[in-house]
Amino acid sequence: MSARDEILARVREALAPAEVGSPAAEVGSGGAEVGPGYRTASGLDEDALVELLVDRLLDYRARVEVVTSDGLAEAIRTRLEGKRFVAPDGLPTSWLHPSLAEGRVTDSREAPVDVVRLDELDAVVTSSAVSIAETGTIVLDGSPDQGRRAISLVPDHHVCVVPVQTIVGIVPEGFARLDPTRPLTLISGPSATSDIELERVEGVHGPRTLDVIIAR
């Protein structure tokens, strides 16, 4: 018998026949009629969402700025001026001031930048798919304006744009907007460790600076 068949046979043997496939689903998160029992919506308005997200990001020691969409290009420019940075090919061209053209390296799935090259760059700029205010979590889903996972990982400084309409209040609202089959990265602050005496230290292998620009 193959390992697969044997393990599946063991599992069936372990569960008494009556127990297999018992429809406990109603009490789980997918509970259709009863509802899950925990909160599924925060009911916060845009101002409150932005305020909460900013508070949580600052708590993680990320840098945060809230700008109007008119001011976005300028906010990005001040962060990347004079730096060599990578941007995904789907990033809106209007976000990048012409003066940044010289330092820009463009990455795409079709023409990926080598990892050693990425390591030599100063920064990366991406958009984001969803942000969860209550936990200060920004989610990248590999869309063309966010790019391959490697580009937001290797450079030491991540400039991340959060369009205000992508902000939700709580975790269930966030997952409801995501496609789980896309490569997802949930980012809550710069990389950190609590491995030394359980004290949090920001900045290990991932970008040591997380620079969030909320555009409303």
């Binding site: 993680y60 795409s108 799935r109 079709e110 990926p112 590999g142 391959r148 996972r149 490697a150 789980p180 089959t181 896309r182 490569p183 997802l184 990265t185 949930l186 980012i187 809550s188 602050g189 710069p190 990389s191 950190a192 991932g206």
Partner: peptide, 14 residues
């Protein structure tokens, strides 16, 4: 800080 979710292989990424 980070959670990664992946589903099989994504062409051109990872």
């Amino acid at each position: 800080p980070y959670t990664s979710l992946w589903t099989g292989a994504t062409p051109g990424d990872g």
